[in-house]
Design a binder for these strands. Structure first.
Lengths: 243, 243
DNA sequence: TCAAAAGTGTTGAATTTACACCCATGG
DNA sequence: CCATGGGTGTAAATTCAACACTTTTGA
């Protein structure tokens, strides 16, 4: 086991840099999702230093002593994407003894759903590259991050059926097909278009903007927006997004 | 902020006793549930020492450096109830800066479902009393434990609809009414008996033991057991326990 | 014979599913 | 004029919800 003090020596690997105002055994890691061209994408970083050098992994950081876990997760997402408004939720804590090879670190994992058009990727000091990957073809990741991603994708399937989190991946105004693509991407199924639109409309969560798409090479679709007020009312009562 | 070393001095409050082989900023807390007389019960401890003295709280402990989080949770449940086989699942990590008044501690919360007839409560060294409470009338709890319980009860409602965790609260052989009572207690609703039994039977998760209840003051009910094999097959395929 | 719970039957309403089909637009 | 996606209609199959009813048992 390496001594914590050694890790804070200036000549150590950057990947291991642990500021004094941070907790020493806890990190947050983030799964940042967005939709692009009907595909669900995950943001990953290729690290520069340390045992993770040249390998892809989730975007994580230490947690400051005076910072809530959720605040830390929010900070990391905002720093790396520039996005300020997004859905943020905790997945779970991962804490196997040897999940991190050098010493005992527990990571609390959060996932975020961001709107691709709001993203401006910011390179971190410790990363060689930050890039989007289709969730269906992910590279091998550091530590237990593949396991974490798998667990999160399962959780998303679970979640998308019971809360309208899908809307967080769309621009304010969207078409029914865009919405359907999100469900298809997350649940990894093909849905029947007529049935999907009937079902989603019946939930009364959508407001017709009375606007149409522009410059599309086919009949222009109606644009809708999500009615958060109706959702807030339904939420307490309990409802279901089964497909 | 109190220095960690002070906390480890022998004259400190027992509640703060932090063994050297444990992580210093992380605990596990457990919600231990069981059914009794159709009610969902939660096991709580009244603490002896420290700032939690004479107050009720969840049953928690430090995590050893060489122990997985889940192993720590399992250890705590087994130590306090004597039960060795039970459903154990992580709820979430709770990590607000001031959730613990004296210093920064993140707790990873697990919940367990145990069979009441297997329980033999063991008093801890740091507890005055360990007792079951009806989840519908809980006392005021230490730190953020009331918030944690509320979050867990919501999670259970969510969970019981999608996985047959209810069976973990029952003895191996049980009646359909006992099963219904679990759903009613967790979901906090009254269910229609004929419809409930039809629905549950159609799922093919039950095996009729071809035995009857004995010594009951009414018509004896058939006993069933849970078919874990069918469940394992269904699980990958995805299914639903809606009521 | 009564209370309490077991267990079955029935029915109309609601929902789901799987399609067929027509519409609008740009290339 | 055709490919692409938008959007409506419909009918059969299934499921749901509510409630009436009969059965078995011990006290």
């Amino acid at each position: 086991m390496i001594e914590p003090n050694k890790l804070r020596a200036p000549e150590m690997d950057k990947e291991e840099y642990l500021p004094d105002d941070c907790m020493k055994n806890i990190t947050v890691d983030n799964l940042i999702f967005a939709m692009e061209a009907g595909k669900l994408k995950l943001l990953l970083a290729k690290y520069k230093h340390g045992i993770a050098a040249n390998k892809w992994g989730l975007i994580g950081h230490w947690v400051k002593l005076d910072e809530d876990l959720e605040t830390a997760a929010y900070r990391v997402v905002t720093q790396s994407t520039g996005v300020k408004n997004f859905h943020l939720d905790q997945l779970a804590a991962f804490g196997k003894v040897n999940r991190y090879p050098l010493r005992r670190i527990v990571t609390v994992v959060y996932y975020s759903l961001v709107r691709m058009e709001e993203v401006n990727i910011v390179q971190g000091k410790n990363t060689l590259e930050v890039a989007w990957f289709d969730v269906k073809s992910l590279p091998e990741l550091i530590f237990d991050h593949n396991e974490i991603v798998e667990s999160c994708l399962n959780h998303l399937k679970y979640k998308v059926r019971h809360e309208p989190i899908g809307f967080s991946l769309l621009p304010e105004k969207f078409t029914l097909l865009q919405l359907q693509e999100i469900y298809e991407a997350i649940l990894d199924v093909k849905l029947d278009k007529p049935n999907f639109r009937r079902k989603i409309q019946k939930m009364n969560l959508l407001i017709n903007c009375k606007e149409k798409q522009k410059d599309v090479a086919h009949r222009a679709a109606s644009l809708y927006r999500f009615d958060i007020n109706v959702y807030e009312k339904l939420k307490d009562f309990g409802f279901n997004f089964e497909y």
